[in-house]
Amino acid sequence: MNSETSAFKADASGTAPKQSDYLPNLKFSDGNEIPMLGYGLGTAMSKRGNKDALDEKIINDTLTAIKNGYYHLDGAESYGNEAELGAAISRSGIDRSKLFITTKTSCRPGETIETAFSRSLSKLGVDYVDLYLIHSPFWASSPAELQQKWAEMEALKESGRARSIGVSNFLREHLETVLQTARHPPVVNQIEYHPYLQHAGGLLDFHRERGIAVEAYSPLTAVTKAAPGPVDAVYERVAKKYGVTPGEVALRWCLDQGIVAVTTSSNEQRLQEWRQRLPLFKLTPKEVGEIAEAGLGKHFRGFWNNQFKEDDRR
Rank of each mutant, 00 (worst) to 15 (best):
G69Y: 05
V234S: 15
A116D: 15
A213V: 01
P137N: 12
R270K: 14
I134H: 00
P137W: 08
A239G: 08
G14Y: 00
A155R: 09
A140Y: 12
V244F: 07
K123V: 03
K104M: 10
V238D: 11
L54V: 15
G86S: 12
V126P: 06
T181D: 07
P279G: 00
P186K: 06
L41I: 04
N60C: 07
N267T: 14
D95T: 02
K157H: 14
R277W: 01
L203H: 09
E84V: 06
F170W: 06
H72A: 09
A12C: 10
L63T: 11
A294Q: 06
G297L: 06
I113E: 05
Y196M: 13
Q257P: 09
A144K: 11
H299V: 08
L131T: 09
H184G: 01
T5R: 05
W139S: 12
Y193C: 05
I58E: 12
G243H: 02
G40N: 04
E273N: 15
R172Q: 15
T62F: 14
G38M: 06
K282S: 15
L121P: 06
P17H: 05
L146S: 06
T224L: 14
S141D: 14
S20M: 06
K123R: 15
A294V: 05
P109L: 09
G75K: 13
Q180W: 04
H194E: 04
L37F: 06
E158Y: 09
A155P: 08
E154S: 10
I66Q: 08
I89Q: 13
H174T: 05
D74L: 06
R301N: 14
L278P: 02
S118Q: 14
N2V: 07
G166I: 06
I59A: 13
V167H: 01
V262P: 01
L133P: 07
A87P: 04
S90T: 04
V129Q: 10
S106Y: 09
W253R: 01
P17C: 07
D127Q: 12
E56C: 04
T105N: 03
L99V: 02
E293A: 15
I165T: 11
A155D: 15
G31L: 09
D21I: 02
L271D: 00
R270E: 12
D130T: 12
W304E: 07
F100K: 00
I113T: 10
H207L: 04
A182T: 03
I34P: 00
R314H: 11
H184Y: 09
Q307H: 13
C107M: 13
F308D: 12
E82T: 04
G295P: 01
V260I: 13
S20Q: 07
